[in-house]
Amino acid sequence: MAETTGQGAAAPAPTPATPARTDGLFLCLISPVMRVIEIPMLALQRMLGIHRLAWVFLLPNLLLFGLFAFLPVILNVAYATTGGANVLLADRPYVGAENFGFLTDCANYLDPNSCREDKFWRAVWNTLWFVTLQVGIMVGFSLLTAIVLNREIRARGFFRAVFFFPVLLSPVVVALIWKWILQREGVLNAFLDWTGVGGYNWMVDADWAFGWSVFLSVWAHMGFYTLILLAGLQAIPRDVYEAATMDRASPWRVFRRITLPLLSPTMLVVLVLALIKGVQTFDEVYAFTGGGPGTATTFIIQYIYEEGFAGAPRLFGLAAAASLMVAGVLVVLTLVQLWVSRRSANG
């Protein structure tokens, strides 16, 4: 007992000596600086009052945010409301809503051929079809994969890595891999020739090129959404499943009555994120098909890029107007996402 007491009395305090010395040194260095800063800060506080002083501290961040977020939006509006091919705003004539009018001048929005700027509407419809198919297939497959990977299967860690791996690849690498596989003398055709089925010129057929673009995009991004859904599945309490097992509920009933309802907040987040990402699709499909054949895989972001930067003359106004229209759609989707997130956070 005495020994124990003695040991307890002799035990050193749990404060490491080195950090304390470092802190001391740091304070020695910083104190004079702080004293110098304190003088104008106190004067500022007296002048502005303590509440307004918060804005002074926020100012650097606000300036950066304004410079890199608000200013580009303002510039975008400025370009969208001016015409011509000049880069400098001072050299561009004000045209009001003319660019928006040019883009939306259509006899029948369902038929791009009846639109003045048919390329824009082809891109819009391609994007809508692409987003519908890609998001639907991707969320479905992600859910399926997440459910399988959530089970006690052999080499589960390996399969999780396999499904996530494409997410780590650069979009251009993804496009080049699949182009290499699907081109006329590609791997797939070589295999089909070998089996006797015979190859096909996939990249020249508009429907196939579109279909493969959807497939490629699903392949490249599915892992990310699988991971989110997997986290959602693991957050569902085990005891709910145990209770269902005791009640002898069938697996389908368990999925329908327990898994899906409890996973729906996560599913909604995944859905909205996938929608936003789908509307923004550009790089991998552009590197994969260049937007062809014809305009079969030209999506809205590629249209903006080509009008503003790749074409001649560079129609910055038209590109800016189209990008503001896309921004409007993305803002709506983002608001939906925020609403969904808040709703799920509040239970």
Partner: peptide, 8 residues
């Protein structure tokens, strides 16, 4: 001509 899009 058919396997590309835009003016590539």
């Amino acid at each position: 001509w058919a396997s590309q899009g835009g003016a590539t």
